[in-house]
Simulated assay, not measured.
Amino acid sequence: MVTAQACRSEWTKIRTISSTMWTLSLAAMVTIALGAVISGFAAKGFDDMSRADQLALDPTNISFSGTMLGQLALIVFGVLVVGNEYSTGMIRTSLTAVPNRATFLFSKITVAAALAFAVSLVTSFVTFFLGQALLGDHAASLGDKGVLRAVIGAALYMTLIALFSMGVAAMLRSPMLALGILMPFFFLVSNILGVVPATEKFGEYLPDQAGSAIMKVVETDGGASYGPVGGLLIMCLWVAAALTGGYLTLKRRDA
């Protein structure tokens, strides 16, 4: 299904469009910078916390606080990788060059996922080590139980956010429409559903809330029942559904 020639073509498209590369850079910078700021504030305010809050402190998860904002840049990246071809009309040329639509779409997904994961993995390790340095005596070590899983999991989470966005963009066939839905959903709607008592349980199973559990090391009372790995698997199901919908739309509709 995925061919080397199609992957090379998709790599050329991604690296020659400055907007896609800038969004990856922005995702890294925002995640690292915001994580560092929040880690610094957490270290300074530790003595003012209640004993319960001190015991519940998750140094690893605190260092990844910037991920929630950095993911917005990866949403833009995922949407642009797919949506740019529709907005410019290049989709017709691309499908002429690669008439097999499964090969076309999944080669694009493979290249974008590899690039997003590479950037996210470097970002995750930099974010972790910088955050722990700022936390000082309250820091976690990479060798502590669950920490390495959380660091690698953060990179997987960011990559899955990009893939989910690609699937939605393929279904909607419009970058503006896709961004108009995804940005408010992840930035506002998901957070609101997660804190309102009537919808809290439903909110736990949304892709971002479920997937972000992989970045947690310290378990707290009243948390979700699925655990870090279970949460990531739930997010994978959302991504699989979005990509399947994107492929079926591409297959059944004219370019």
Rank of each mutant, 00 (worst) to 15 (best):
T103C: 13
L177Q: 04
K13P: 02
K251L: 10
V151Q: 03
L156D: 00
A169Q: 04
A213C: 07
M235V: 07
A178K: 08
K44R: 15
A198Y: 05
I14S: 05
V147T: 11
G231N: 08
Q132L: 01
D221Q: 14
A224E: 07
S65R: 13
L248V: 14
L250T: 11
A36W: 09
T220K: 14
T96N: 09
S87P: 00
G245S: 07
G66I: 07
S212T: 12
N100R: 14
M158C: 04
A150R: 12
M235W: 02
K108M: 01
I192W: 11
F64V: 02
Q71E: 15
A155M: 00
A73T: 03
V81A: 10
R101A: 01
G227D: 09
A114S: 03
V111R: 14
G167F: 07
A139T: 00
V76G: 04
M235G: 12
V81Q: 07
V111P: 12
I14V: 10
Y86F: 15
A139H: 04
N100M: 03
F64M: 06
L177M: 15
E200V: 08
I214G: 05
F187Q: 05
M183H: 13
S190M: 15
G40K: 06
G45S: 12
L243Y: 08
A178N: 10
A4F: 10
L134T: 01
P59R: 03
F46W: 12
A198V: 10
I214E: 03
I234C: 10
